[in-house]
Amino acid sequence: MPADYLASARKQFAYYKLLGDQTFAQVADEQLFWQPNPACNSMASIVKHLWGNMLSRWTDFLASDGEKPWRAREAEFDNDLTTRAAVLAQWEAGWQCLFAALDELAEADLGRTIYIRNQGHTVLEAINRQLAHYPYHVGQLVLLGKLLQGEAWQSLSIPRGDSVAYNAEKFARPPHQEHFTDEKLKR
């Protein structure tokens, strides 16, 4: 295993946080609460769910089960946040909790066992579990943003029609070692 796994995981999480940040910057306040239909979550509800999950999973990460007794998962899907400030406060609090826990870990911790709902995971597996879960929901946020903004949406990736130029620029440089998020996170 590479010695820089934790740094790489942190960059991955930061990248997905950035995609959410860039999505929120493109939508109006009232759009944070829009639901395409009653079976779908609003951006605010998705944020509330991520916040609840992050606080539960990353608080006391190495010492207590990741599904805390105080977590009210079902309530996370109630569309009861009413302001952009409230949505963004929960968004930031969840990520702050995650990054604080990651920053306390050492590579030697990766093989330790932690529990989520009484199921053992190595720390590495638990991190990977969340690296799959959070991008799933960030993708939902981005899709909602794209649906709401339509033609006004500013791409968060390589815009349509720009792939050839983008790749030409990348291949014009000599091969080098770089995390794929480094370029995006520097902006």
Rank of each mutant, 00 (worst) to 15 (best):
residue 151 E to P: 00
residue 65 D to P: 14
residue 126 A to F: 01
residue 135 P to T: 05
residue 113 T to W: 00
residue 53 N to G: 04
residue 31 Q to V: 07
residue 109 D to L: 01
residue 43 M to T: 09
residue 6 L to S: 01
residue 92 E to H: 15
residue 77 F to H: 08
residue 95 W to T: 03
residue 5 Y to I: 09
residue 68 K to V: 06
residue 78 D to L: 13
residue 27 V to W: 06
residue 85 A to Y: 00
residue 93 A to G: 02
residue 168 A to W: 05
residue 20 G to I: 00
residue 133 H to G: 01
residue 52 G to C: 11
residue 17 K to H: 12
residue 113 T to K: 13
residue 142 V to Q: 10
residue 99 F to S: 07
residue 20 G to Y: 02
residue 165 A to L: 08
residue 126 A to S: 12
residue 121 H to L: 14
residue 78 D to H: 12
residue 96 Q to P: 00
residue 43 M to W: 08
residue 34 W to R: 02
residue 29 D to R: 09
residue 126 A to Y: 04
residue 15 Y to Q: 09
residue 150 G to E: 06
residue 81 L to W: 11
residue 34 W to E: 07
residue 60 D to A: 15
residue 71 R to H: 06
residue 97 C to N: 07
residue 102 L to E: 06
residue 37 N to V: 08
residue 65 D to L: 13
residue 48 K to N: 15
residue 173 R to K: 11
residue 20 G to N: 05
residue 95 W to Q: 06
residue 154 Q to V: 15
residue 171 F to Y: 12
residue 53 N to K: 02
residue 39 A to P: 00
residue 51 W to E: 10
residue 103 D to F: 01
residue 80 D to I: 08
residue 123 V to R: 12
residue 8 S to A: 11
residue 108 A to Q: 08
residue 31 Q to D: 13
residue 51 W to I: 03
residue 115 Y to M: 14
residue 52 G to R: 07
residue 184 K to M: 10
residue 4 D to G: 07
